[in-house]
Design a protein around this nucleic acid. Structure first.
Lengths: 389, 389
DNA sequence: CTTGGTTTGTTTAGTAGACAAACGAAGTTA
DNA sequence: TAACTTCGTTTGTCTACTAAACAAACCAAG
């Protein structure tokens, strides 16, 4: 019944290995001397740690840097090509995936529509899709270090999909089954959680520690980054902010509650309004707005208002630094934004409003795949630092 | 520009000291051999660590335990009397305080109404109140190790009161000024945050890692414990769940938003309804309910419904293990509870509902003082483990 | 083109602290 | 009483960090 990891010399080594590696990741290219100065570790210690990391193929020497009056430093860089990570976004109607290096930079990309019902199961399609993304020649020495899978539904802490409201998918142990199939760690999580990570690392929320990512698609999903890390509730799956009620006596939702936010502010809500003017898709509604169609503009303004109303509540509750709106609805950012900002200005508490920026996602519909791939790579680095790889 | 604490033998020593101390705190009385077995630390290491802690007065040997077939073990206990901590709850109309030992157990208690306007300032009263709580003979060897102050308003990360809606108090650097005055660390925070801690450690939420504490008084304040620790938003002050909107087109609130929860479910809301039946205080309204007064029962049911509506949203958003209702309204727990549970059952998502328990606070109006004192003591222990004391 | 000062990175010696094993003291059971 | 357990300490070994010394590499000024 070990309570915590007990401290011994090996722990020191692991800690310092992590510190050195992080230093290079943040400030590359970097010399041994610079690492020592930046971290407080002794020069000798840094030399030893760097030698280990070179031997493990995680760093490379990339030649000499500029002298600052004495011997030229040997510059070190992280070897992002020592392995690769796979990131997948499973949408209700599409599959999207990337192969990325250990830094999360995209090496290959693939997307395709989901096959019509009656054909192969979603799981079979997913496995085939991943196989196509795998590298022909596995990178040395680590090969594929992990797979991240964003799913459109409720996912528990073990990476099992429990509920997928907008698609035909039974509860499935996605992570476990893929781990068995491919023999590498699999991180399965809600697509919005990965979207939040993607934007935080590569997109509009760089370096932000308190972030709410609103994935406005058919329904509304959310990814919460609190204090720099993904928040999962007590059960391991994240808050369902789509079912935040904004009107306690409003229309009943299939979840049992009344006046749920996603009934007012999702793609579905937009399509319902759009039907009245004979318009059947978001793309069409965007086009009408571009042509100045007044009713279309009114619909976007209305959806934007409701988005803003919910976001104001989110700001009051979480006091985040940023709220990012992503997924399908972000294609109409231009027409939604004024209404969103108007409601947030009017409704959020002054103290919190001053802090929070409300923006649209920068990576568009790519936030989730990028985040998923990054998570897989990051998991590998965490294992390295923990001495498991 | 040191990035992190670098790993060296002293760090290991601190880590292991913390592990040993925690083992005793959780399982006392405990022998050295039992600590070794329970933590995985070597017997020799434990002996050395325990000797240090004995020398520092943090542990005592309390005689021999029962043999299990060999030499009798020497039992060790945490010396909670090595210092003491002060906890204060500043209410809008009262002051309440305790002196506690290092485990947070109450040694002395004091409460008094706030002086009428025109007399001494709140700060002056507070300082005098603390002075009365200080021990005549400071406990050896650490004396007063810290002060925790729960405040009825928005408090930032530095312990400054920014806004106190229900009382006459300018923005004040409470923590800094008291630290200067008393020369010990001061933790100032929102009263609801300490209430959450109090219930988590000593009350109805023992050991729960995801907790929302709803302090239902004149307004509604909340304390959020996420993943075992207090959540403070980006600005350092906690979410204002009282201004969670439950009806986007509802009545305007002074905060600028519409349909704020605390307009429906606070003491103030209850009093507004009660005025119609000529009733002027919560206590009176409780009494009427006890006598079976039907209109009074209806009012409690209504307030309970609104409480439940907000709590259902909170459950959907945070997916906590427990929601605790504390402060003044908890005196009517008996009449509120059915309505609260009814709405939560009807509105919270099935997945989350199964997880979350909704209860009333166990420590009554004492949650916050207890939590404040515990926080001060805990801060001391954290400093011990960090090697600063 | 030499000389002096600087910077980089390695080598060497010393130290803190954990662990394993052996041991004496104190108990229990047969 | 003898044999076996358990507790806690002592002793020696090992790991990994630090400080200091050092060699190599480099710049710049005379």
């Amino acid at each position: 019944m070990k309570s915590t990891t007990t401290g011994d010399p090996a722990l020191i080594r692991r800690i310092n290995t992590g510190i050195a590696l992080d230093a290079v990741l943040k400030g590359e290219p970097l010399s041994r001397a610079a690492i020592s100065a930046g971290t407080g570790l002794n020069k000798a210690t840094v030399s030893s740690l760097v030698q280990d990391l070179l031997d493990r193929g995680l760093l490379t020497e990339t030649g000499q840097g500029a002298s600052s009056g004495g011997r030229k430093p040997v510059m070190l860089e992280f070897r992002a090509s020592a392995g690769c990570a796979i990131g997948i976004d499973v949408g209700a109607t599409y599959l999207m995936g990337v192969r990325a290096d250990l830094r999360g930079e995209v090496l290959a990309e693939l997307r395709r529509p989901m096959e019509a019902a009656g054909g192969r199961s979603v799981m079979e399609q997913l496995i085939g899709f991943i196989e196509e993304l795998l590298p022909k020649q596995p990178p040395q020495p680590y090969g594929v270090v992990g797979i991240g899978i964003g799913l459109p539904g409720i996912v528990d802490g073990a990476g099992s999909l429990l509920l997928a409201p907008h698609m035909d998918w039974e509860p499935t142990e996605v992570a476990r089954r893929l781990e068995e199939r491919f023999g590498v760690p699999v991180h399965a999580d809600n697509e919005a959680n990965f979207g939040a990570q993607g934007e935080r690392i590569f997109g509009a929320a760089a370096g932000i520690r308190h972030l709410v990512y609103v994935s406005a698609g058919m329904g509304i999903g959310t990814g919460l980054v609190l204090d720099g890390q993904l928040y999962r509730g007590a059960s391991g799956f994240s808050g369902e902010l789509g079912h935040l009620s904004i009107q306690f006596d409003g229309p009943a939702c299939r979840c049992g509650n009344r006046g749920c936010w996603e009934r007012f502010a999702s793609e579905q809500a937009a399509l319902e309004s759009a039907a009245a003017i004979g318009c059947g898709s978001l793309e069409e509604l965007v086009q009408l707005a571009e042509q100045g169609h007044s009713e279309a503009l009114r619909i976007w303004d209305e959806i934007g208002s409701y988005l803003g109303i919910g976001i104001a509540t989110i700001i009051n509750v979480f006091n985040p630094e940023a709220v990012l709106i992503g997924s399908r609805l972000s294609m109409a950012a231009r027409w939604l934004e004024p209404a969103v900002q108007r409601e947030v200005q009017a409704r959020a508490l002054p103290f919190h409003r001053r802090q929070a920026r409300v923006r649209f996602a920068e990576l568009g519909d790519g936030s989730a795949v990028r985040g998923a791939a990054w998570q897989a790579a990051e998991g590998f680095l965490a294992r390295v630092k923990a001495g498991e790889a």
